[in-house]
């Protein structure tokens, strides 16, 4: 599927989701995930190694591409950012999981990766994996806080944007954000 076909399908699915279709909701996620993954890989290949590659920038690029000349309504924007944050989260976790296997591999891999590289990659993979578990736990107890975290951290939305999508005040979003990240840090540290 080309980029523009994917865009068309995503915008159509957004409408179907707004109409309350459950099938469309999972189709939307799958579609957004695939497209984001494709964009991530393309960006990875074309960005010079020295530049920082911001996954949240990819979410925004995708958004811009989808709604090039018009402003989507609140519903569509909401569904899009929920799907995209979750997709970005899953993409990072999937990458992390692949790299986490380095740690278990023992010495065989060493010749292909220096010790330093290996240590760093592994630590980061662990962190991402840990965050995933923590976010799941947070979601069970504090759904709004988890949504704020997903939209801001994985979706790259500003507090103002998050506030608009969740229909909260910016001040509340800031408080939820402080709570969510501290909660997660506490969760991770108490489980080492």
């Amino acid at each position: 599927m080309s980029g523009s076909e994917a865009s068309n399908e995503i915008t159509e699915l957004l409408v179907a989701v707004a109409d309350g279709s459950h099938d469309a909701e999972s189709a939307l996620f799958a579609c957004v995930y695939t497209e984001l993954h494709r964009m991530a890989c393309a960006a990875w290949r074309s960005t010079p190694a020295s530049d920082t590659l911001q996954p949240t920038a990819l979410v925004h690029e995708m958004y811009a591409r989808l709604f090039r000349d018009r402003d989507p309504n609140w519903e569509s924007r909401r569904h899009f950012f929920f799907a995209a944050s979750r997709a970005m989260h899953d993409i990072l976790v999937e990458q992390a999981r692949r790299h986490a296997s380095l740690k278990r591999g023992g010495g065989r891999r060493r010749e292909l990766l220096t010790g330093d590289e290996r240590g760093r990659v592994t630590a980061q993979a662990d962190e991402i994996m840990g965050i995933r578990e923590a976010v799941d736990a947070l979601r069970r107890e504090h759904e709004i806080a988890a949504q704020v975290l997903m939209l801001h951290y994985f979706g790259g939305l500003s507090h103002d944007d998050v506030a608009e999508l969740l229909e909260l005040s910016t001040a509340t979003v800031r408080r939820r954000w402080a709570f969510a990240k501290s909660w997660i840090r506490e969760y991770l540290e108490s489980r080492i």
């Binding site: 990875w44 996954p55 990072l92 990458q95 501290s182 997660i184 506490e186």
Partner: peptide, 24 residues
């Protein structure tokens, strides 16, 4: 939780980008 918050207010603010490349 408060300790974690005080310790690093920038926690989670801008960490994910650099990591992403290393993961990929």
């Amino acid at each position: 939780m408060l300790e974690a918050y005080d310790e690093d207010e920038t926690l989670f603010e801008e960490p994910i980008g650099a990591r992403f490349r290393e993961l990929l």
